[in-house]
């Protein structure tokens, strides 16, 4: 990993997105408190922290998943570059945000459709009708998700017939097919066995060439293995953000240190 080329200060680094004073409320409960956070382009940024710390909540702000549920409120901004639009602005259509920023969920959630249709779904939602273009995109996405070889002969099979790890890679392919700018991963391996987990991790490292990645993980080793930057969150606050290496070797916050050394969590 070439993380050393980007210093912590991020001077000269190219940002893909940036949270500025972001707060998030469910009803009266403030789940995120005033978060400032950079997302560097074509890098993997990991979010770690004990359960309930708000890391998934934070991740789900990036594609406005919270808008599906009532009684919530964003404050502050998440700017998406290069255009610098604030994607949590009330006037910005969440659907447009989701068309640019894809997500892979904790539990594999393929649709009960064929493998092919699962991957093609995002294109269909965008009104793409050109069959050969869809074919091409499906193959490209499945190759990028390292699934093509396993499913090329059975694209019409029901996605439910795949194993858990394959299903998760299918969900990654589904997210990749529409060429998202950022790909969000919400604990993508927590429902998978170690071998499937290793494959997904490898994939995440490869994918950063194509797409900016933000990953929530409960597994610190995973964060250390795949990410260039790591953010540690605790009770809705961003405690520390730094180079992954530095976070794990020389954290500046006492809390971070206690967490990564396993004293709580």
């Amino acid at each position: 990993m070439n993380t050393e080329t980007f210093p912590t200060a991020k001077a000269g680094a190219e940002l893909k997105a940036q949270a500025k004073a972001l707060s998030f409320h469910y009803g009266d409960f403030q789940a995120l408190k005033n978060i400032d956070f950079p997302v560097e382009r074509n890098q993997v940024t990991a979010l770690i922290g004990p359960s309930g710390c708000g890391k998934s909540t934070f991740l789900r702000c990036f594609n406005r998943m919270h808008d599906l549920y009532p009684n919530m409120r964003y404050e502050g901004e998440i700017l998406l570059y290069p255009d610098g639009v604030n994607i949590v602005d009330r006037h910005v259509d969440p659907i447009e945000v989701r068309m640019r920023i894809s997500m892979v969920f904790q539990k594999p959630n393929p649709f009960p459709k064929s493998i092919y249709e699962n991957v093609a779904y995002g294109l269909r939602v965008r009104g793409v009708r050109n069959r050969s273009l869809i074919d091409e995109k499906v193959e490209e996405a499945l190759r990028a998700a390292a699934l093509w070889g396993e499913v090329r002969d059975r694209l019409d099979d029901l996605a439910f017939n795949l194993s858990g790890g394959q299903q998760q890679r299918l969900c990654i392919a589904r997210a990749l097919a529409t060429d998202p700018e950022i790909l969000l991963f919400d604990e993508p391996t927590s429902a998978l066995d170690p071998i499937a987990t290793a494959k997904i991790e490898e994939l995440v490292s490869e994918l950063k060439e194509k797409v900016t990645i933000l990953i929530v993980t409960h597994n610190m080793q995973q964060a250390a293995r795949v990410s260039a930057y790591t953010a540690f969150m605790y009770i809705g606050e961003l405690i520390e953000f730094d180079d992954t290496k530095r976070i794990f070797t020389n954290p500046s916050s006492k809390l971070t240190e206690e967490y990564i050394t396993g004293r709580f969590g």
Partner: peptide
């Protein structure tokens, strides 16, 4: 139908009616 199917569809950029009619 589990909620994560709906979320998966929304994450692909579906509108509400698309989620309902496609899924």
């Amino acid at each position: 139908i589990p909620q994560n199917i709906r979320e998966g569809a929304y994450a692909c950029g579906s509108s509400k009616w698309q989620v309902v009619s496609h899924h």
